[in-house]
Simulated scan of single mutants.
Amino acid sequence: MTVHRSSSGSFEQRARVRPLERTDLLSVMELERLGHSHPWTQATFLDCFKPNYRLFGVEDERGELIGYAVIAYLVDEAHLLNICVSPNAQGRGLGRWLLRHLKAVALADQMVQMILEVRVSNVVANALYLSEGFSEIGLRRGYYPDGNSREDARVMALRFT
């Protein structure tokens, strides 16, 4: 899948979504370190290469990985576990575009809904999910590590039917 986006009149981005492979792990780990305060380990990513997981990468026009997402399928539910866009590519609509791709794939795979957790302090991500039709269905207290303490996670869901 290829996208051609213009933002602010001057930015042109060509990107494509493709399945992630184990050979992408070094690039994924670098993005993970840049994009998350408490990054997943390499072992965690390796554990996701199973039949009930969907791992996608976003490449720019040079073939460089600039984003990724990991989803676990549990019966008829798609659980978005991790989504990340390179800090250099943020604010250009790629996160929204990737999320829409994930929703389309989950729907095509006959999932009934998509759920996710998001830090309550992540205002940008919360706004994105709300604008894409997700609604808050719960709160997980102390879900995310946050320095010496823990941060709550907003649980959000989007029903496809």
Rank of each mutant, 00 (worst) to 15 (best):
N148W: 03
V3N: 05
F11H: 11
R22P: 13
R140Q: 08
E132Q: 08
L74N: 04
V58W: 12
Q110W: 14
C84W: 08
F11T: 05
Q113A: 14
S27A: 15
D24W: 05
G147P: 01
V58C: 11
M114K: 05
R140Y: 08
N126M: 08
E136K: 04
L20S: 03
S10F: 12
E30H: 09
L139P: 00
R22H: 02
K103W: 00
R100Q: 12
I71P: 00
R22S: 07
N122K: 06
R154L: 14
S7Q: 00
Y73L: 08
L46Y: 13
L46W: 12
A104T: 12
Q113T: 05
F49K: 11
D76L: 13
L46A: 07
L99P: 00
R119D: 09
C84G: 01
G142R: 02
A106Q: 08
E12P: 03
V155W: 12
N88V: 14
F56V: 14
S37D: 14
R33I: 13
V28D: 06
R16S: 11
L139A: 06
S121Q: 07
W97C: 02
S131M: 02
A69I: 07
Q110N: 15
F160N: 01
S27Y: 01
V124T: 01
A153D: 01
M156N: 10
S27I: 05
A106K: 02
R141H: 08
D146N: 06
A153R: 13
Q113W: 01
Q110D: 13
Q113C: 13
D76R: 11
G138M: 04
E21R: 10
P51E: 15
A125M: 03
L81R: 04
G138H: 06
F56W: 15
E64K: 15
T2Q: 02
S7C: 03
A106N: 03
Q113F: 04
R92L: 15
R14K: 07
G67W: 13
R159F: 03
F45H: 10
N148M: 11
G138D: 04
D24I: 04
L74I: 15
F134Y: 10
N148K: 13
R154I: 15
G95L: 14
T41W: 03
M156G: 09
R14W: 04
R154T: 11
M114W: 07
M156Q: 10
V58E: 08
Y53H: 15
T23C: 11
M114N: 02
R100A: 13
L128F: 07
G133I: 00
E21G: 02
N148L: 10
F134L: 11
L128A: 06
E61I: 10
W97P: 03
G95P: 00
L55G: 05
L46S: 08
R33S: 13
V123R: 13
Y129M: 02
P145Y: 02
F11N: 11
L80G: 00
V70A: 15
V118I: 01
R5N: 05
D152K: 11
S131I: 00
A153S: 06
F160M: 02
G133L: 07
L139C: 08
S6C: 12
L102K: 11
